[in-house]
Design a protein around this nucleic acid. Structure first.
Length: 476
RNA sequence: CGGGGAAUAGCGCAGUACGGUAGCGCGCACGGUUUGGGACCGUGAGGUCCCGGGUUCAAAUCCCGGUUCCCCGACCA
């Protein structure tokens, strides 16, 4: 009966059970890779479409670039190649012949896009270049987990070029805000925006910013990043433009990415022991209709009503599924709860007679989440309920996060805090400090949160004066 | 890539100490009875016992090598 391991028993098993039972993904016959099944992909598509709209609304256009990257491209930016070398997949043979120059399967596209930008940008009038690309990339990971860390993963990468650092910096922050809004509004996940410490920066970036979310086991998940690449890639690839003053200048570039890892975050932030709990805005199915009957006579009358209700909900713009499978109602209730469908409409002979339906909400599992409501005005009621659930999920996740995050002022306090939550600690931005804390507590420096009150503190490791706190947590 | 566990039907597992030709629950197919919170009875299908080698009359079981998965580390979106 218990198909899903309780979260409290084994969080990792729970996560894998939910993915399997909710029919989101399967293991591929290739090490470290997954197959995303229609239900999981549909969820990804919904998130993607929302994000894509946000990119378009901020002036970006989509394009596509090759998945093969000449090794020499990667080598042009010293830090970049150093960072990615250990996880590259490299093609050395093509068409049966050894290649003159090996091709890396893209681990990210800064280099090949930089090469193209160098050709496209001639004048300040060509700037900014605001392009996004939806693709998959490959990183040879040693230890994988569905959605959170797979050898091939789907994501988007935005790449922009600007005339001034002021412009590129604004872009970096604008897209970080886009990610935050997406997490909050669509995924109902509160995130902490911040600047990555020196040791956690993207390979080749001057600065990396991230959004960090707290999972149900109080571990952190980096859910999106935005990089200020300075002029590093512009120098490596000669991305130059002639400015108004007729002098040649190097561009300032940015890149930003968000992967299907966010899907893992949705699972881990909202899921419970019954399975998934999907935010209504991104749920592939927002309302499941379960008909209830005991014989053919009841079936025909119930199905007639169910079909009519289905139509009114669908016409109201909802993603609705009429479950006509030959299973018992009880089975279906549990099945849709496992899959995280936010709302469920149950229609039986009594409802037909009373011109009512039972309306159940996933965020309150079982009978307590059920109410008998009139069929009249159902679409409006369901839409209001979905809004309520969407807001409620965010509220719950935010309360959970806030209850498990602590400000600390000593190393001992930090050690205790990261045992079961996030810690905000004053530290200097020094790779050695990050490394020491990581080694001794397993917690990493997630970022220096942007929204924090500046103050005068002493670094908990070095004792040096510092003006901001960093967020520490054990992370995925 | 280091340390630990595991791999037998779609899923969860037993069988392995002591070698003898593969089983249970759920799921699946069909028939019937059921149906307002994971229904029941009957019949049936489904297996390279992770892979490769070795020992043996005989290997899921013993030996050697490899692969994959899970947990904990190092690395990362």
């Amino acid at each position: 009966m218990a198909k899903i391991t309780p979260r409290s028993k084994d969080y990792s098993e729970w996560y894998l059970d939910v993915i399997r039972e909710a029919d989101m993904a399967d293991y591929a016959p290739v090490r470290g890779c997954i197959v995303v099944k229609p239900y999981g992909w549909s969820l990804y598509e919904n998130m993607r479409d929302f994000l894509d709209k946000r990119f378009k609304d901020t002036g970006h256009s989509n394009a596509a670039f090759p998945m093969f990257i000449p090794m020499s491209f990667l080598q042009k930016e010293a830090e970049h190649v150093k960072g990615f070398s250990p996880e590259l997949a490299i093609v050395t043979i093509g068409g049966g012949e050894e290649l003159e120059e090996p091709l890396a399967v893209r681990p990210t596209s800064e280099t090949i896009i930089g090469y193209m930008y160098a050709q496209w940008v001639k004048s300040y009038r060509d700037l900014p270049v605001l392009i996004n690309t939806w693709n998959s990339v490959v990183r040879w990971e040693k230890r994988t987990k569905p959605f959170l860390r797979t050898m091939e993963f789907y994501w988007q990468e935005g790449h922009t070029a600007h005339a001034t650092h002021e412009d590129s910096q604004a872009e970096v922050m604008r897209m970080l805000d886009v990610y935050e809004q997406h997490a909050l509004t669509e995924c109902a996940i509160p995130v902490i925006k911040g600047r990555k410490s020196i040791s956690e920066r993207f390979a080749g970036a001057n600065n990396t910013y991230s959004i960090e979310a707290m999972m149900g086991d109080r571990k952190a998940l980096q859910s999106g990043t935005s990089h200020d690449l300075g002029q590093n890639f512009a120098k490596a690839f000669d991305i130059k433009f002639l400015d108004r003053d007729n002098t040649e200048k190097l561009c300032w570039t940015t890149s930003w990415g968000l992967s299907w890892r966010m899907l893992g975050a949705v699972i881990m932030v909202h899921g419970d022991d019954q399975g998934l709990r999907l935010p209504p805005r991104i749920a592939p199915i927002q309302v499941a209709i379960v008909p209830i009957y005991r014989n053919d006579a009841e079936k025909s009358v119930v199905m007639e009503t169910a079909a009519r209700v289905f139509k009114t909900l669908k016409d109201a713009g909802l993603r609705v599924k009429l479950d006509d499978r030959e299973e018992t109602p009880g089975f279906k209730f549990n099945d849709w709860e496992m899959r995280g469908v936010p709302a469920r409409v149950e229609i039986g002979p009594k409802d037909v007679a009373n011109h009512s339906v039972a309306l159940a909400r996933r965020d309150v599992p079982g009978k307590p989440g059920k109410a008998f409501v009139p069929q009249d005005g159902l679409p409006e009621r369901v839409i209001a309920l979905l809004d309520e659930i969407q807001a409620g999920l965010l509220k719950q996740a935010t309360a959970f996060r806030d209850a498990n995050i602590r400000e600390v002022n000593t190393y001992d306090e930090l050690k205790a805090a990261v045992e079961d939550g996030f810690a905000l600690a004053p530290v200097v931005d020094d790779p050695e400090v990050d490394a020491k804390i990581k080694e001794e507590t397993k917690a990493t420096n997630r970022n220096f949160p942007l929204d924090q009150a500046e103050g005068e503190w002493k670094c908990i490791i070095t004792g040096k004066p510092v003006r901001e706190r960093a967020l520490f947590a054990r992370a995925y």
